[in-house]
């Protein structure tokens, strides 16, 4: 059920995306009729590998263009915007955390955060330092990603995702490359920092332990290809 006076940071309707397979057959990957996410909500999507979760997140982030349907982020219709505007909206309103961190290898931790800022609201060195401090990397700001452990690298990615104070954070299997201790820590950190920054969190994973930390877990396969108009996710 939709709680009153809560703004939707993400609204999706009739979203469809298909790809051509190597043997020239069209394969439907995403077919979501209705989905939304309210501000400050933390939702985990469960789904098997290859079920289309990453494509779903890429469609939300505007990295992929849907075949049809509507995606609105922070009140702006992402899918209707021209590409440069989509890029801008992605930079300012969305933070993206990847399974493989996707840090820029030639940039220090601080620079990785700064480069994220540079496409959004502008570079703020002090804020970037504070963010790295918050994720426990006070003494590693000038280290390059290759000089960090995998857990530390994901912390940099978390700081970078929050650098522009996004309304929505997308996390794609963020613990997939971490051992269980690191996974727990990083996941807790993602949730805490999202809460502190007032960002909604949409996490996709097939890791039971990760999913177990969420109060609200939805099955991606249930609402993907779901033709009904009922919202698949109903927030508390």
């Amino acid at each position: 059920m939709l709680a009153p006076n809560k703004m939707r940071v993400l609204e999706i309707s009739n979203l469809q995306k298909s790809f051509l397979t190597p043997d020239r057959k069209r394969h439907d990957v995403v077919n979501v009729s209705d989905f939304f996410l309210e501000e400050h909500a933390h939702v985990a999507l469960r789904g098997e590998s290859g079920s289309g979760k990453t494509t779903f997140l890429n469609l939300i982030a505007g990295i992929l263009k849907p075949d049809s349907g509507r995606v609105a982020v922070a009140g702006r219709e992402m899918s209707a915007l021209p590409e440069p505007e989509r890029d801008r909206l992605r930079a300012t309103a969305i933070g993206y955390i990847f399974q493989t961190f996707n840090l820029l290898q030639g940039y220090t931790c601080l620079e990785n955060v700064l480069v994220g800022m540079s496409f959004g609201h502008g570079v703020d060195r002090e804020k970037a330092r504070r963010l790295l401090d918050r994720v426990g990397l006070r003494d590693h700001q000038n280290h390059y990603p290759r000089q960090l452990s995998t857990g530390q690298q994901q912390r940099v990615a978390v700081a970078r995702a929050l650098a522009n104070q996004p309304k929505l954070v997308l996390a794609d299997e963020p613990t997939g490359n971490l051992d269980s201790a690191n996974a727990r820590e990083v996941l807790a950190l993602i949730r805490e920092t999202c809460r502190e920054n007032g960002a909604a969190l949409l996490l996709v994973s097939h890791d039971r332990e990760a999913l177990g930390q969420f109060e609200q877990i939805e099955d991606f396969q249930k609402f993907n290809n779901n033709a009904s108009n009922d919202p698949v996710v109903d927030h508390l």
């Binding site: 990295i63 440069p84 992605r90 300012t92 820029l104 496409f119 959004g120």
Partner: peptide, 15 residues
């Protein structure tokens, strides 16, 4: 390519 993809994901325009 990967770096370019990362920059684009962070909001860099194609241009």
């Amino acid at each position: 390519r990967r770096e370019i993809a990362i920059l684009r994901a962070l909001g860099a325009h194609r241009r």
